[in-house]
């Protein structure tokens, strides 16, 4: 992926910014220009809390190019508190200890590296939610 292609997504990758539909009130992530629930225009930004729970998960041992340093890593569908599902890696957790329903929270981590001289991309991952103090 090129520089502009990643730069364009910075508020999603770093801030989990989606949209809220002014018509039906659904929260939308990833953002799009038309609400998938009521097909009205949806362009009002909405920042998600980053809290959610594991909806499903799997662990990858044979990674695509650019992800070798993370192996083995767990990818998950995370159900955000506000409703949407998001696809992301889990971090700071042993793959064996991941469960459906586990509470998780968003953190910012390195997503991939395009070789020694290429782009380094950062973005959201999710980790087990720390105990509220």
């Amino acid at each position: 992926m090129g520089i502009a292609q990643n730069w364009r997504l910075r508020s999603q990758r770093y801030g989990l910014v989606g949209e809220v539909c002014d018509d039906c009130g659904e929260k939308i992530f990833p953002p799009r220009d038309v609400c998938p629930y009521c097909t009205q225009p949806a362009q009002t930004p909405f920042q998600f809390s980053g809290r959610g729970e594991v909806f499903s998960h799997t662990t990858i041992y044979n990674p695509p190019t650019g992800y070798e340093e993370f192996v083995p890593y767990t990818v998950a569908l995370v159900k955000l508190e506000e409703g949407p599902l998001v696809t992301a890696q889990l971090t700071d957790v042993d793959p064996e200890e991941v469960n459906i329903g586990q509470p998780v929270e968003m953190v910012t981590r390195k997503i991939r590296e395009d070789g020694p001289e290429g782009l380094i991309m950062y973005g959201y991952k999710f980790r087990p939610r720390l105990q509220e103090v």
Partner: peptide, 26 residues
């Protein structure tokens, strides 16, 4: 799959199906 929101997270095609199967079994 979605380049910006699925593939970027290091997910493979089989892993996407694994997410479905895990949830289905559950």
């Amino acid at each position: 799959a979605d380049a910006d929101y699925e593939v970027i997270h290091g997910i493979s095609f089989v892993a996407l199906n694994a997410l479905l199967m895990r949830r289905y079994l559950y």
